[in-house]
């Protein structure tokens, strides 16, 4: 009779439950109708089961997004958890879709589910990858744009984990600034 060790059948629980969302741009539908919840998971094994099963971000058509948010937070500014928050934004140029995009996104997912932000986990809402013809964007969303020290520490950790060169700055914008700034981009509240 074969003896199975507990490691072989007990999944590794995550600190938080996370929900993966998919957005597909269909101009004939309302924005919210284009946003679909794929699934929620709370173990390491279920994360990989999902990740290995879905299309890589670099293979998505232009106009699509993936988002990973804590369960109960919708990936939109209007959500109660996001409305006072903002995002660290990493802009990718066209060449980086082939070379960096999938690595950046996976690394960000591992930061979220592995709680890389440690005691600042309560500041974290989720992350989004936007696939766009004019340049893809990675955003790490936090819940309160006024929390300067925490926000800067989160940005530094993200930059370190993505191995973004020190000389390349990334910026953080409050959603309230982005929402009211039609056309051009909002000013950065913080940079690292």
């Amino acid at each position: 009779q074969q003896i199975i060790s507990p490691d072989q059948y007990i999944k590794h629980p995550l600190q938080n439950k996370w929900a993966m969302w998919f957005f597909k741009n269909d101009k004939n539908k309302e924005w919210t109708a284009n946003l679909k919840l794929i699934t929620a998971f709370d173990t390491v094994e279920d994360f990989w089961g999902l990740y290995n099963h879905i299309q890589k971000a670099s293979k998505l058509p232009s106009g699509c997004d993936y988002s990973l948010f804590k369960d109960g937070i919708q990936p939109m500014w209007e959500d109660e958890h996001n409305k006072n928050g903002g995002r660290w934004l990493v802009n990718l140029n066209k060449n980086q879709r082939q070379t960096e995009l999938d690595n950046f996104w996976l690394e960000t997912l591992l930061c979220l589910i592995g709680e890389a932000f440690e005691d600042l986990t309560d500041d974290i809402c989720g992350a989004t990858i936007n696939i766009r013809g004019k340049g893809d964007k990675l955003g790490l969303w936090t819940k309160d744009a006024r929390r300067g020290d925490a926000t800067v520490k989160i940005g530094q950790k993200l930059k370190e984990r993505l191995k973004i060169p020190v000389k390349i700055a990334i910026g953080f914008q409050a959603h309230s600034d982005t929402a009211t700034k039609a056309g051009s981009t909002a000013r950065d509240r913080y940079r690292v």
Binding site: Y9, K11, H12, P13, L14, Q15, V44, E45, D46, F47, W48, G49, Y51, N52, E107, L110, I113, G114, E115, A116, E118, R161
Partner: peptide
């Protein structure tokens, strides 16, 4: 307890999940 997992720990399960 807090469940903080580093990237190497998480990555080792990437290709185990199909069996579970």
């Amino acid at each position: 307890g807090k469940k903080h997992y580093d990237r190497e720990f998480l990555l080792q399960f990437q290709f185990d999940s199909a069996a579970i």
